[in-house]
C-alpha cells in the first residue's frame, strides 16, 4: 500500500512558539498503521500525544477506543508527551487494532 506523507501540527501554535528559538522544540513522528500505512506528524515535545492520536483517528475515520498506540512496544497513554517518553526526531509510533480470541472458528 502506498504511503501518503502528511504533515500536520496538532498544536496549531507553530507561529507563536519561537520564544526559545530552538528547532528542538518540535519533533517529527511517524505513525505506522497496522497495514504499514505511514503518516507524519510534527508535534511539540511537551504536547500530550492525545492530540496526535485524535488527529490520526480522525484522518483514518477510526474510533479512538478501537486503536492502541505503541512506542517501542509499550502502550502510549493519551496524557504522555514525547519528552516524557524520551522520543527522538523521526521515531515511530505503531498503531495496532485491539485483538480478541476465544476459539478457532474454522481451520
Amino acid at each position: 500500500m502506498s504511503s501518503t506523507p502528511t504533515s500536520v501540527q496538532p498544536t496549531g501554535q507553530s507561529g507563536e512558539s519561537k520564544k526559545e528559538g530552538t528547532s528542538t522544540e518540535h519533533i517529527n513522528l511517524k505513525v505506522v498503521g497496522s497495514d504499514h500505512n505511514e503518516m507524519f506528524f510534527k508535534i511539540k515535545r511537551t504536547t500530550q500525544l492525545k492530540k496526535l492520536m485524535d488527529a490520526f483517528c480522525e484522518r483514518q475515520g477510526k474510533a479512538f477506543n478501537s486503536l492502541r498506540f505503541l512506542y517501542d512496544g509499550e502502550r502510549v497513554q493519551p496524557h504522555n508527551t514525547p519528552l516524557e517518553l524520551e522520543m527522538e526526531d523521526g521515531d515511530a509510533i505503531d498503531v495496532m487494532v485491539e485483538q480478541t480470541g476465544g476459539c478457532i472458528q474454522c481451520c
Binding site: 497496522s34 497495514d35 504499514h36 492502541r68 505503541l70 512496544g73 509499550e74 505503531d94 495496532m96
Partner: peptide, 13 residues
C-alpha cells in the same frame, strides 16, 4: 513476556 502485538508486528501482512 512479550505483548500480544509483538508477533503481529513481526509478521505484518
Amino acid at each position: 513476556a512479550f505483548p500480544s502485538y509483538f508477533y503481529t508486528k513481526l509478521t505484518t501482512n
